[in-house]
Structure formats: structure tokens, C-alpha cells
Write a protein that binds this DNA or RNA. Structure first.
Lengths: 236, 236
DNA sequence: CCGCCCATTTGCGGAAACGCAAAGACGGCG
DNA sequence: CGCCGTCTTTGCGTTTCCGCAAATGGGCGG
């Protein structure tokens, strides 16, 4: 037994998907859970596979990436602790539409897909939570799509960095530090551009004192300035 | 009474959201429904409003558009008959995140939001259907985002046109005819570009015999060629 | 302490797309 | 039949951004 069951139970009780379940139901959830640690850059599941398990990130950071027809990887979402991965695939019983990769050493809870489906049939609160979570994710994607459709690359990268800071930011004396290793390529995949463009933007921003960029490492010195880059600048 | 209740009942029984409900439940759904006709370009609901009603398109065509920070409208999804509109906003009780506008004369069923919420609490099948629908929509958006992130404008417009044809295409002797009035601007908002670029692409495609483009009207003569434009062309 | 690996920078070139202005065409309405 | 409002075309300038090659640099293992 890798972990005392009590610890898993405590983790489960803090997960949004399981909100509103009573003590006995939470016990059942915890009992069926598996807790595992993954190193950085580990693959939790791959695009196209049948959905065998439902994952919830307990610690660390992960990303959901999709490979498009031309072979470019695009990061659809960065997953912070407490969030569910693969939920749509498991709920709908369709192949994983994307690949999940850890961006840092991570702790992951998981359940067999059939266990979750069976419990959803039995516990209305669970299905209601699932609907709420998937609904929120839909709204996020819609918003991202709207931005991606018309915004310039600088704005997209600025937004990506701010979103990342909200999920993996560590406040320090200097500013907000992204607490996981992050290459230019990583950010490019999130913002939908290439590593060269990110590099150029970083140089420009660093010169203006907005960020501090090191190898695999970024600190946001002036969040307000980044936010401003995000604001309505069009046609000029 | 605008329609015999029997007609509404028949419509309801063919809607995916209500699949698996028994006769009595369907009666209840039909009884609470309102059926209304809208002219082209009517607004069903607007971004930011509180979600008072849930809509299902019974006939015609509609689009869901979102205005981004810079004020550009982006069409997130085109809605064909049988599909639900506003579902996420109603299910989660958040303001409509986008605006719904008819693209043709349309017939629309609708229900008060609280009626749907109350029934969802009572009927597990309804919530299960809702989860499935929202899950599918999430997958669609994710796919669109992945394309939008890296694909060239020509590819995006080609995809948009094919998607549209699948929803509002009429097979004719010449090819697939889009059966609703469609301006260059409309397609630009779907593909995330501007009307000039669409116009230029149309000229080029028409010259190659791929499409027939008239004012507010498109016919796809060679779907395979369009499909090919969509295929893996990068870096060249 | 050296060398290697990998992330990153940087320059240059060119293609893709946007932005705008103004003319042109199509259709409907009076 | 002609006017008018819309949608559409088209030319041109300009910006943005990709795409690649090659140099640079930092950090870790040996």
C-alpha cells in the first residue's frame, strides 16, 4: 500500500468532482483510488487510447496537448492540482482526444473508468458535478478560441503567461515566479506560435522590465504591464 | 395556441437532450415548451444576459457568436435543427457567454431555465444526456482550437465551409449548395479572418472550379478538393 | 575543469494576411 | 425602369510572423 488510505481520503474530500458526497460515499471513492507519483514529462495517457482511467492531479502540474493534422502539438489546457483530466473521454466513453503530460514532478490520483461510470449512475451529485466541470471547461475553451481567432501573437503569449501564473505562480519579492520548468517551446505550444516568436517577445519584455527570463524559467515582474498588452489593441 | 400540442410533442421526442425519457416525461416536456418562429438575423439571446430560457432549434439555422476584447465577433458554432443552444449557461446558471443569432428563418422551441433545472434534478436520464452533449461540444471546441492555433487562413476557411455544408448543405446536381444566405463576412467570422481574405480565397477557388460563389450564396462543386486543402500542408 | 547537450538567441528573408479606400455588381423596391 | 443599399471585388501598402540556419550560452556530468 503506497499511502495510508486516510491520506487519500483527505485528498478526495477536497476534489471538486466529489463535492457534496456524504462520508460513506467518499470512503468508497477513496477506497477505489490509486495514488501514484510521476516524474516530469511523464505521459499519463495518449491521444487515441481508450479511456481506461480517470485522473485527478493531486500535486505538481500537467498539460493536455493535441496534435493537429499537420503534426504541430497544441496545448489546450494546463492542469493544476485538484483538477480532473480526461473527464470528457471517460464520461462519454470515447478515445482520449488529447495527450496528458506532466510539466513537473506530479502526484496523481486515478480511478478505473468503469468505477466512475458506475458511481455516476448511482450518485446524482457526482453527475451534477461532472456537468458543472465540463460546462466550465467548455466556456474556457470557447473564450480561448475567441481570443485565438483574432488576437496578435504578442497578446496570445501575454495571456498564456498570465493564465499560467494563475495556476503555477509563486509570489516572491520580485514578482510572480512560474514554479515549474518552462521552455520557450512549452509556452509557444500554449499560445499557438513557435519558440522563436516567444524568444523575441521575451527579449522585448525583459528589456522593458516586464519579465525576467532565464533558461526554463520565467518571473513576471510587472503583471499589470502584461495585462495591458492583453487589452484591446487592434488595427494599430 | 400557435401549434397543436401534438406537433410540439413530436418535435420533442426527436431531440437528443430528451432521449430516453418515457411517454409521460415527454408529455411534461412538451407541455412546458414554447414554439416560436423567428425571421433571419433575429437575436435569440445576448452575451451577458442572465439565462432565462433554454433553446432548441427546430428548423432553420443559427449561430453562436462571441465578441472578444477587441470587439471582433467570432462565431463559435453553427447550430443545426435538433441542437440545443445556451445549454452551458442554463445548466450552470451563469450569464450567456455568447450571442445567438438566426442565419435563416427559424423555428425555435424553448423552455424556462428553472423548468429544465428542476426536471434535471428529477430525471437522471436528462442530466446524463446533458453531460453527453456538453462533452461533445467540448471536444468540438478543443478540435477547433487546435486547428485555429496553427493552420493557415485558407485551411481554416476550407474547414469552415465543409463544416457548414455538413449542417446546412443541400445536395444538387452541381454539388453541395449551402441552403442559407451566407455573406463573406459570415464565413470570415466562422473561420476567424476578415471578409477580404474570404473574398480572395473564393475567387481563387472559383477559378479552379472548386466552388461557385454568388452574392450571399455558395455551392461546393468539388468537395474532395476542398478537403484536400484541409489536409496536412505545413511549412510549404 | 572541460566538454557536451540542450535551450536559447539572433539575423535575414519571404510569405501570409491584414487594413483600408474606392470602385463595382447585384437585387430589390418604388 | 432607375435608384439605392448591400454585398463584393480589387489594388496596394504595410505589418506581422513564420521558417530556417547558425551562433551563443548555461549548466551538468564526467
Amino acid at each position: 500500500m503506497p499511502q495510508p488510505n486516510q491520506g487519500i481520503r483527505a485528498l478526495c474530500s477536497r476534489i471538486r468532482l466529489f463535492e457534496g458526497l456524504d462520508a460513506a460515499e467518499l470512503d468508497e471513492v477513496a477506497k477505489a483510488a490509486e495514488l501514484r507519483d510521476f516524474p516530469r514529462r511523464a505521459t499519463l495517457f495518449s491521444q487515441g487510447e481508450l479511456p481506461a482511467r480517470l485522473f485527478v492531479l493531486a500535486g505538481g502540474l500537467a498539460k493536455i496537448s493535441q496534435i493537429n493534422g499537420a503534426g504541430d502539438p497544441v496545448t489546450l489546457r494546463v492542469i493544476a492540482p485538484g483538477e480532473v483530466l480526461a473527464c470528457v473521454a471517460v464520461f462519454r466513453q470515447i478515445p482520449y482526444p488529447a495527450t496528458a503530460i506532466t510539466m513537473a514532478e506530479s502526484r496523481v490520483l486515478s480511478w478505473p473508468a468503469r468505477t466512475i461510470l458506475e458511481m455516476m449512475d448511482r450518485l446524482p451529485a457526482l453527475r451534477a458535478n461532472a456537468l458543472d466541470i465540463v460546462g466550465e471547461r467548455t466556456g474556457d475553451l470557447a473564450h480561448q478560441l475567441t481570443e485565438m481567432a483574432m488576437a496578435r501573437v504578442e497578446e496570445r503569449v501575454a495571456r498564456a503567461l498570465l493564465r499560467l501564473a494563475a495556476r503555477a505562480g509563486q509570489a516572491t519579492a520580485k514578482g510572480i515566479e512560474i514554479s515549474v520548468p518552462l521552455s520557450r517551446q512549452d509556452l509557444a505550444e500554449i499560445a499557438g506560435t513557435d519558440l522563436f516568436s516567444v524568444s523575441r517577445l521575451f527579449r522585448s519584455w525583459a528589456a522593458r522590465g516586464i519579465i525576467l527570463a532565464r533558461r526554463m524559467h520565467v518571473t513576471i515582474l510587472d503583471p499589470a504591464a502584461l495585462q495591458a498588452l492583453t487589452g484591446g489593441r487592434r488595427g494599430g
